[in-house]
């Protein structure tokens, strides 16, 4: 029963939600709307589970003195401090959260925002280093990739047009990069999208029909 009931619920609700796309009658649309509203609440519960899981995994790591256990302490302390300050600010807040001047707002502006931006900014340096060390043109395909990358990279920024200003318009970098984006790139991206969509449909059907059971946990 531990497996049959969830499988039955998944199949019944899955088929019902598919039917709601095609049957506009209120006997179908009203329960479907209710189920969709339930989904929002269930996702919100996911944050609680996620937080609890982060705590469990990292506290275990600290107690076993796993590699980088010091980092785990920073993570757990940050999580608890942010959580407690958030709860206190939330109880005091009478309007927007986080309110101006609150501890949560300070954490958001001075720690979260700045650290997020810093992590993303580092990409510029690593991409430059990776371009030098890893992008090797050993085959024809790699050569084509490099040529396309160079054209798009330079054509996307103003300097590309400045560099090729004297050339006929059709072979300026800006025009060439737009052609690459509009045709070869677009065709391959569309193929990937269609393939992925078919894969999602197949997976959805497998879940609804009870063939795919990994979401239940344990063995297949």
């Amino acid at each position: 029963m531990k497996r049959e009931v969830p499988l039955f619920l998944t199949a019944a609700i899955g088929l019902f939600m598919i039917a709601s796309f095609f049957v506009p009658h209120h006997w179908v649309s009203v329960p479907a709307d209710f189920l969709q509203a339930c989904a929002i609440i269930i996702v919100a519960f996911g944050y609680v589970l996620g937080g609890a899981n982060v705590l469990r995994v990292n506290l275990e790591g600290i107690s076993r003195r796993e590699p980088d256990w010091g980092h785990k302490i920073v993570l757990v302390v940050s999580l608890i401090v942010t959580f407690v300050i958030g709860i206190v600010d939330g109880m005091r807040a009478h309007g927007s959260f986080p309110a101006e001047g609150s501890g949560s707002k300070w954490i958001y502006d001075n720690l979260y925002a700045t650290m997020s931006a810093t992590m993303f900014s580092l990409l510029a340096f690593f991409i430059a280093s990776a371009a030098f060390r890893a992008f090797r043109i050993r085959t024809l395909e790699a050569g084509l990739l490099a040529v396309a990358a160079l054209i798009v990279m330079l054509g996307r920024v103003p300097v590309g047009d400045v560099m090729t200003h004297g050339l006929p318009e059709q072979i300026r970098l800006g025009v060439l990069q737009q052609w690459i984006m509009d045709f070869p790139q677009n065709a391959s991206k569309r193929a990937i999208l269609i393939g992925a969509a078919l894969g999602v449909m197949a997976t959805g059907l497998r879940v609804i029909l009870g063939i795919e059971r990994s979401y239940l946990g344990g063995e297949e």
Binding site: A131, A134, I137, M153, P158, V159
Partner: peptide
């Protein structure tokens, strides 16, 4: 920011070429 991005893109393009030259 576009001027900075322009120079960064030129630099990365140069890095790809120099990296292959070094190899």
């Amino acid at each position: 920011g576009m001027d900075a991005q322009s120079l960064a893109h030129i630099f990365i393009a140069l890095m790809i070429l120099l990296g292959n030259l070094a190899a």
